[in-house]
């Protein structure tokens, strides 16, 4: 029942994105071709090329046929054609995706683990000086928008101190291999990652701390203490484990916003991920790439959320009966 409802939700969400993607350019004034590619590009296109595009996306057909065509081409992995980068949108996105995965994945893992540990320790020491210090620090951190955090790290560590490269994911045209290549990538990776982790960690921390405080009031904590378990086991095995559930849900939901958060960081560090792709296509008004990216990100987020739903069942035995 619950699972069915979830799938319906994902279905509806997917449909909304698809329709928006399809409708937005076609609702703009002018021919769809103008809307999809923009005035500037059309001027440069040859009539034959235009005709081939119209044929490829069935732009001379009525709207519903266009939609059917659109869906079919999506299933073929055809997300459109980028005139600027003269290539398939799908291929372009695919080339950028790994960098974003790297950034989002690592930052999510680090910020979640960091947030959970800090949250558990802070909640456990509630009201003590350590807790107050961590809480205040985290609250302050939560005020920094990702792009400002990125800029500050960039200005301080890269520009002023010169410790890290200014931009990119690796040194361009450098002829390096093996371990040196890895080191080079890591060097480029640290600042964007740090910025993202700093921005993300406070949310996870606050949630963990709150649930921790509530969990600590439960009777089973008293049972655990009465059993003579050492503090650490009470804190992690009993209190922490129970505080984990909402955090995991949140991390799932966060997957979507993490891509967004990474977007600004990628722009600032010119990190060649999907976010940067969005930005550069925005600057060039490369709308097909923009749309394709949105679709890919949406699918990715939906999949991630679904995955979290599955994990959740493993973590909380009570949920199993709900299905």
């Amino acid at each position: 029942m619950n699972l069915k409802r979830k799938i319906t939700n994902y279905g509806i969400a997917f449909l909304i994105i698809l329709s928006l993607n399809f409708l937005l350019p076609r609702l703009m004034p002018g021919t769809p071709l103008t809307a999809i590619y923009g005035e500037e590009v059309l001027v440069q296109m040859t009539p034959e090329f235009k005709a081939s595009l119209i044929k490829r996306f069935a732009l001379d057909e009525p709207l519903y046929k266009q939609f059917i065509f659109y869906i079919f081409s999506l299933f073929r992995g055809d997300l459109g054609y980028s005139y600027y980068q003269s290539g398939s949108v799908f291929q372009i996105i695919l080339a950028h995706l790994p960098w974003t995965f790297l950034l989002v994945g690592f930052s999510l893992i680090l910020s979640t683990i960091g947030g959970i540990i800090l949250g558990i320790e802070s909640g456990w020491r509630r009201g003590k000086i350590t807790d107050k210090a961590i809480l205040t620090g985290m609250m302050t951190l939560s005020g920094f928008p990702s792009f400002f955090m990125g800029i500050m790290l960039l200005l301080f560590f890269a520009v002023n101190l010169g410790l890290f490269p200014l931009q990119g994911a690796r040194t361009p045209y450098a002829d390096i291999y093996g371990i040196w290549l890895v080191l080079d990538v890591v060097k480029h990776f640290i600042l964007p990652l740090a910025a993202l982790v700093l921005v993300e960690v406070s949310g996870c921390y606050l949630l963990t701390r709150n649930t921790m405080i509530m969990t600590l009031r439960k009777s089973f904590i008293l049972t655990a203490k009465a059993k003579g378990l050492p503090d650490k086991k009470v804190r992690y095995r009993h209190a922490g484990r129970n505080s984990l559930l909402p955090v995991v849900t949140r991390t799932g939901i966060k997957l979507g916003t993490a891509v967004t958060g990474a977007l600004f960081i990628e722009i600032i560090f010119s990190y060649p991920g999907v976010g940067n792709l969005i930005y550069s296509s925005l600057l060039m008004r490369d709308y097909p790439v923009l749309q394709g990216t949105l679709l890919m990100v949406a699918i990715f987020v939906l999949a991630a959320n679904f995955f979290v739903d599955l994990i959740y069942k493993k973590l909380d035995p009570r949920v199993q009966n709900a299905y």
């Binding site: 937005l24 939901i253 891509v259 967004t260 969005i278 949406a298």
Partner: peptide
């Protein structure tokens, strides 16, 4: 529920860009 799983920021960027 559907809207909650949509990456709104990116959608907003797309719409705003148009």
């Amino acid at each position: 529920d559907a809207f909650l799983v949509i990456p709104t920021v990116i959608l907003l960027i797309l719409v705003a860009a148009f």
